[in-house]
Design a binder for these strands. Structure first.
Lengths: 197, 197
DNA sequence: GCTAAATTAGGACGCTCGACCTATTTCGGC
DNA sequence: GCCGAAATAGGTCGAGCGTCCTAATTTAGC
């Protein structure tokens, strides 16, 4: 039936704990206890803690891709798709105020540890950046699409950082409203009849 | 004599290492080695690691106050003061790309550890918020001064987050330029006549 | 149904950590 | 110059960590 493999179960719980407590602060014993298996069993699935981290990052990549695809199929309009991205700040507001952005905080931690996996973690941001850039391109902003994507990504990261520090729901809502106004104000240039290069 | 007390020396090095490597990842042995003292000597100055963290946060608070005061005395115009804040992103660009914002990353780490000192760390953000709000008030924005301050603080945090992840100097410079344009666009309402002062 | 492989359990290791302790040295007030 | 306090050095302890190991159990192929 709904039996998920132990390996998958480990990855899911590790994903959650890495998010809530951080990578270094989460021990194998913590995860084993959360999954309900022995510590020894652990090492049959993941020899090194870094292997587990790789699997978690891979899972987050896959989940992110799924989410982006889902938005793309749910919303035909690029602006609605971008709005869905902005709305994560509201949908996950409680978690964000408690533990920040899963991607941003992981990248920050790995950067401080000078961990090899920080390149992989950065790629999750890359997924959002590229997807957002594509939406802005669909809006006709073929020129600075990537800059717009990075701008929005950065704004979103800033909201999560202060949300975590101040834990003020009103701030999050104010900033989300500002982001949506910013999005609305983006001009959707009429397509020129011929491309004057 | 430039002789600084051992205690002060410890705090300075700990401040630096907490920033570069993170609080938990920095051990007493690391700091002792950096200072050039024995581990035993350490415990004469700080009984608990949390005591040292408190001292580091206090130091950062004091340094922040000094920096803000310095800006206030160097720039009579509120907009120039705010511009000085924005320019930290350029002045500390290299450090920020390597280790992020000292305040933001510390708050994030302490939040994940559910550490008692996260309230103290948050106060450093509070210093910036209040100081920025005062500048916006001086600009005539008495109404939404704090919201403007938090907006700017958040924008700055977002830049540091992506700067750390992507390590792209061009992104930082683009966003700083955007922030300065945003600042310039803030309307400075004409003072009403009945404001003699 | 047998057997080899996959899975699980749990102990053991070497190490590092924060914390504590006891000596020894340095220093300042009188 | 004496002496008590401050400062420094370095050892030790228990706990927790990632890692590894061996043994028991379950599973799957033929």
């Amino acid at each position: 039936m709904g039996k998920v493999s132990t390996r998958q179960h480990i990855i899911e719980r590790a994903d959650q704990l890495f998010y809530e407590r951080g990578f270094e602060a989460t021990s194998f014993a913590d995860i084993a206890q959360a999954v309900g298996i022995s510590r020894g069993n652990f090492y049959h699935h993941f020899k090194k803690k870094d292997d587990l981290l790789d699997a978690v990052v891979e899972r987050r990549m896959a989940n992110t891709r799924m989410m982006l695809d889902q938005w793309a199929s749910a919303f035909p309009e690029p602006k609605d798709r971008i709005r869905a991205f902005i709305q994560i700040l509201i949908v996950n507001q409680a978690k964000i105020m408690a533990h920040g952005c899963p991607v941003g905080t992981l990248c920050a931690e790995l950067a401080k540890l000078e961990h090899v996996a920080q390149n992989s973690a950065r790629q999750i941001f890359g997924l959002f950046r590229d997807w957002l850039a594509e939406q802005f391109r669909s809006l006709g902003r073929t020129q600075g699409a990537e800059a717009l994507a990075l701008h929005l990504l950065g704004r979103s990261q800033g909201v999560t950082a202060l949300a975590m520090a101040f834990r003020d729901p009103a701030f999050v809502e104010t900033e989300v409203a500002a982001l949506e106004r910013w999005l609305d104000s983006i001009d959707q240039p009429a397509l020129p009849q011929d491309q004057p290069s």
